[in-house]
Amino acid sequence: MDKCPMCGARLQQGLNYCEACGADITIYQNVYNDVLNNYSQPTQTPGYQPSYQAYQQTQYQTCPHCGAQIPQGVQFCPNCGKEVKKRHFW
């Protein structure tokens, strides 16, 4: 890493934090992977262990925007990023 992943400033060699924004860059990749993992796994109730069979039975639907095959029940298309079904806050 030669640039800070948080703010884009040049990183100083040998420091484990960014001099511009103070981010701890040693744990950045782990935390970012954690964040991305939240999106790849379907939301489940705690304690529920997905079995291999359940994985096999994943239903697919077609994205109305780009036509890709996407898992049933996702809010956003993993291919084009658009909202599959519009949801409003009220």
Partner: peptide
């Protein structure tokens, strides 16, 4: 755009 400058935090679980 961060006004004045940016401070950032990477938080673990």
């Amino acid at each position: 755009h961060a006004l004045g400058g940016v401070s950032s935090y990477v938080l673990k679980q």
